[in-house]
Design a protein around this nucleic acid. Structure first.
Length: 476
RNA sequence: GCCCCCAUCGUCUAGCGGCCUAGGACACCACCCUCUCAAGGUGGCGGCACGGGUUCGAAUCCCGUUGGGGGUGCCA
């Protein structure tokens, strides 16, 4: 196939479909995208689906959907590695023609056994290197790696990294079933796609000299710029893993993290803006981002800090945007299971939304701020004990006063409610904080929540007075 | 074992030989504001892993030690 002409910067994101978007993959995608967009270049998308069973369409759709959710777009058509087998095969043939490849009949067990016997360097020992074997059913093709010299990688982030060729074993480039190995497909496709900047995780650094050797042997004219990103690690400073860590992007989305916050926070893992302003729109990050200023050391994924970013981005939302994004969370949490979503009346939530918006760190926290507007309060035992039993006298006084004063109010509005309750508290030298406690618990069932007077205004006088009366009766 | 990478507050980072008695952010603590909780404001706690060099001068350069991590598949 003819080579594709390249812009100054063309990056690619090359995930293998695994069923969800891994946090580390998302960060890699983001940095590839930032590098491309900053330079006015392109970012291509390649699905590395050489494992046949992994290429189910729904699995791939999930990755594309999550990228879209994050706001990471790509240029051109998606390249599917599974459809590029012919090119991969041709590349192996060309290596054969140049004497850079040979057939090998050794099984994994053979290789391991011989290593055990001889000790020393691990890996393949070149047993079939000069045997002149022909193609065979259970034979693989190996790359003939140079016996001496160094392969040097010039990495924008790490500088010069040197590998002795003698340490690079004759690796497999074609499986016995005829398909290309990851390393082969990867190198061939990057050449084909005209990738100028290979941006990926540091875990792939040890495989890079093989890529370079392969490219050289395939007569690739342009040398790509490599950038190996620091790993994102857990609290034990290990690479994030599917098994033990919470790495699925989709699960963060489902917990009410905003894509704006997600990409913003991810961008600070391994990179920092020169002016030190961390929370900011992605457009500004594109302008400031530099691959060369990416950090070298691994970064801990701190959910606490992510939540802080998320809270900031939530507060930056317009009121209407906050409502529309939060409504699904409120609806599913407050509606009985199986109920028709359309049967949910968003009015009460919408009325309280601005007050909720400045209080949540995640969208999924919103239901707890308005649930009492939709059904009788679920009484929190600790809150009840603290406000109603610990000082029952005060509870009785405040509840009686509230029922009395609020029942006589001319207008049912937050200011009027406030003046009545606070006026009573001040006149009787009761601290305002203590005064509202029993009323809040009676109305909401909790000791903390959104501003009470507004909540009562939304609830309505009748229901509010009912709840106060019910609580008063329970206090005795 | 072998190869490779990394090393500034608990965490993410700024720093790229003198501006550093090391700056910011998250977290934590205190106070202010306040109908609770948040938000906001003010202040506080807290770090250059260690040892050698180089230099008039080192968080910044070099070497070593220690520590951490990654890789070592007919996975990607």
């Amino acid at each position: 196939m003819p080579p594709v002409p390249s812009p100054t910067v063309r990056t690619r994101f090359a995930p293998s479909p695994t069923g969800f978007m891994h946090l580390g993959s998302a960060r890699t995608a983001l940095f590839n995208w930032l590098a491309a967009r900053h330079a006015g270049g392109e970012m291509l998308l390649r699905i590395e689906d050489t494992d046949a069973e992994r290429s189910q369409p729904e699995v791939i759709d999930m990755i594309l959907g999550t990228l879209e959710w994050l706001g990471i777009d790509w240029d051109g058509e998606v390249v599917y590695q599974s459809q590029r087998a012919a090119d991969h095969g041709a590349a192996v043939d060309s290596l054969f023609a140049d004497g850079k490849a040979y057939w090998c009949a050794c099984s994994r067990d053979d290789v391991d056994l011989r290593h055990k016997e001889r000790g020393g360097k691990p890996g393949y020992d070149g047993f079939c290197r000069d045997r002149g074997l022909a193609a065979g059913a259970d034979r693989v093709v190996r790359f003939r790696s140079p016996a001496d010299g160094d392969t040097v990688i010039d990495d924008v982030i790490r500088g010069e990294v040197r590998f002795a060729n003698a340490d690079i074993e004759d690796f497999v480039i074609r499986r016995s079933n005829g398909s290309a190995m990851f390393i082969t497909a990867n190198a061939v496709d990057d050449i084909f796609m005209g990738i100028t900047h290979i941006v990926r995780g540091e875990d792939l650094l040890p495989a890079t000299p093989k890529i370079v050797l392969l490219r050289e042997s395939l007569h690739a004219v342009d040398r790509p710029t490599f950038a190996h990103l620091p790993l994102i690690v857990n609290e034990k400073r290990q690479k994030l893993s599917k098994r033990r860590d919470d790495v699925a992007l989709e699960s963060y989305r489902d917990r009410g993290f905003l894509p704006e916050a997600m990409v913003n926070y991810l961008a600070t893992l391994g990179w920092g803006p020169p002016d030190g302003v961390e929370v900011r729109p992605i457009a500004e990050i594109i302008g400031l981002f530099e691959l060369s200023s990416v950090t070298k050391s691994s970064a801990f994924f701190d959910v606490k800090k992510l939540e802080s970013f998320n809270g900031d981005h939530i507060r930056n939302l317009s009121a209407a945007d906050f409502v529309s994004r939060t409504l699904p969370f409120v609806r599913t949490a407050l509606l009985p299971v199986g109920a028709d979503p359309a049967s949910f009346d968003p009015a009460a939530f919408e009325a309280m939304a601005p007050l909720v918006q400045e209080r949540v760190k995640r969208l999924d926290e919103a239901p707890d701020f308005v649930d009492f507007l939709y059904h009788d309060p679920a009484m929190d035992p600790d809150a009840w004990a603290k406000t109603m039993e610990k000082d029952a006298d005060l509870a009785r006084r405040m509840l009686d006063a509230a029922i009395d004063l609020l029942g006589a109010l001319a207008v049912w509005e937050p200011v009027a409610i406030n003046d009545a309750v606070i006026g009573f508290a001040d006149a009787n030298e009761i601290s305002r904080k203590k005064a509202q406690g029993p009323i809040r618990v009676a109305i909401t069932g909790r000791a903390v929540g959104p501003p009470l007077w507004e909540a009562m205004a939304v609830l309505g006088r009748e229901v509010s007075l009912d709840r106060l009366g019910l609580a008063r009766a329970s206090v005795g």
